[in-house]
Design a protein around this nucleic acid. Structure first.
Lengths: 330, 330
DNA sequence: TTGAAAGCGCTAACAA
DNA sequence: TTGTTAGCGCTTTCAA
């Protein structure tokens, strides 16, 4: 005889009440008399009863699942976002269905479709870009779609975006004021909207101020790419300032400069990063960077999920210069 | 008129078949004629139908959900584990319900109870220790419980554990052979079984070889703790070798030694870490450490989930010395 | 191979 | 406040 899982009917029987009474006992804000409630709780405890959320969600209310699609969860920047987001979701009584794409360029459409099958209330995309058909389907199904630092135009979704433009300008300003004139900007080959925007705006800003600028835009967004960019860009020794659109890239570049090329930072070359990942504060790097408030970002995502009505909001996450030691003092 | 979600009955009607036919079409290995199948698929596509997994799981088969409980997802070590695990789950057709404890010492029992409510097939614990009552309940419900580097005795669950003992010996051997005699071991104050085991075995190993040893065991498992340990331990200048039970601690200690105390590594002091997180390979640290195979670990977890029968296996994940530049050559 | 019908565990509308 | 009843969307016997 298979060990049957206990259900509300078992509890009802044991407590001598109806199934509805059981249901109400476990529904916040339903009307049950204290006595019935007590009987139910006692029976439930004795039997080891737990509400079945799958069955529960089958009714009108829907599920409290939030689909989160990501990639490269071990990159510090993504990991930090996911960490805060999953804590926040839990605190608000939602659950996080995590779908991790094996690699950043994998098509995320199948993952989102899987999320549909779970009838998730909302979908948060940390990585990759959903094709338009998917965006459309989200709207049709009334599933909130929230993109973080993704996709810029024709946005029919909630968009949470770092204020890349301001960030890039701050970076440019730092370098220009430090007296740098031969500049470089380093991005990965992923060409995400965020990276492009940062690079673009930086180029514009320093270009207007009469600086020369070269650019690197290749490889995945990793430390190793930063290393390669550093080797390639700094070997000739004529670059005196670099903006890396990501801290991870900056750290690789910094190491190439110091440990392979024997350059001094900031005396020979100044470096600015972006994101303020935890490692940027470590002594060995002490990287001057543009911080975006992860808390603010997370808050914006949670707000977007909770607000009902169609998705169509664009939130700008403010940035701030964190001045450490990789930029020369004018 | 509310926009109703399409269900199998709509599809059946549109295709001119029964609901069963629709169900079968979407059930791998059910018997449907090609014609019916084609009709159903066409109708489903036209209507934008997706199976409702919640309803699906309500039947005998159960869900494919795997509960993952963690904390500190942004620490490199945990992030890496979660990354590989979530990819692996997806590849095997399972979904990852992620519950992130806000902090490492939070009681994880409520999180696991929540997972029960979703009727997950298995629960993987990356952080924290489930109380015995929970372990018992898992068994009673037939939910696999898999602990990674947690809890050592009275194990009535699947245990995936790094071979800490071998690792600690390798670390000891490195330092002793490098000629270090005044040793220190650094762990956090979290006193997890893993950290205790590493510290313990190291102490034993070097003790037997006539080395002096001091120990630090305080604070959270972070870079900053490593920094503090470094300051405290190395200031006097009489320690010539340190084993940090975690790379993160080692990196903090390394930075304190080099940047605050002006010590040379490995000339003045040798350092060995544990885990081989990605950052350990970065130039600025180039840390000699004990690597555990994350792939192996992940594989073991997936195997444990898929194998049925009661949980009771102990898997030892092998370790390996990764020799870099923070230990003196004899 | 197909359809009818019962049932998975729960909630919500309705009456009492 | 309580119980009864009718679904929620799906799978799965059981006959045909």
């Amino acid at each position: 005889m298979a060990k049957k899982v206990v259900n509300s009917i078992d509890v009802a029987r044991k407590a001598g009440v109806s199934r509805s009474a059981v249901s109400r006992t476990f529904t916040p804000g339903a009307s049950v008399s204290p006595e019935v409630r007590a009987k139910v709780l006692k029976a439930a405890k004795a039997l080891g009863y737990r509400v079945n959320r799958l069955a529960q969600s089958l009714n009108g209310s829907g599920s409290n699942l939030i689909g989160v699609v990501g990639a490269n969860l071990s990159m510090p920047f993504i990991a930090k976002q996911l960490d805060l987001l999953s804590i926040g979701l839990l605190r608000k009584g939602m659950q996080c269905l995590l779908l991790n794409a094996a690699d950043a360029r994998q098509d995320i459409a199948p993952l989102i479709e899987l999320i549909f099958e779970f009838r998730a209330r909302a979908i948060v995309v940390l990585s990759g870009e959903p094709p338009n058909a998917i965006v459309e389907e989200c709207r049709a199904r009334g599933v909130k779609l929230i993109l973080i630092n993704r996709k810029t135009e024709g946005a029919d979704t909630d968009l949470i975006m770092t204020d890349d433009v301001t960030g890039a300008r701050l970076a440019g300003q730092q370098l220009v004021e430090a007296g740098c004139r031969k500049l470089a900007v380093v991005a990965s080959g992923s060409r995400t909207p965020t990276q492009l925007r940062r690079a673009e705006e930086f180029r514009r800003y320093v270009g207007e101020r009469g600086c020369d600028i070269v650019e690197w835009m290749d490889g995945p967004t990793t430390y190793e790419t930063g290393l390669m960019a550093g080797r390639a860009l700094l070997k000739a020794g004529n670059i005196d300032g670099v903006f890396c659109v990501t801290d991870l890239l900056a750290m690789g570049l910094l190491d190439a400069a110091r440990h392979e090329l024997g350059l001094r930072v900031p005396e020979d070359v100044s470096v600015v990063g972006f994101d303020d990942i935890p490692q940027a504060a470590w002594y060995s790097y002490d990287l001057t960077t543009i911080a975006q408030s992860f808390d603010h970002l997370t808050e914006a995502v949670l707000d977007a999920i909770e607000k009902d009505g169609p998705s169509l909001e664009v939130v700008n996450v403010p940035v701030e210069l964190v001045s450490r030691s990789t930029v020369r003092n004018s």
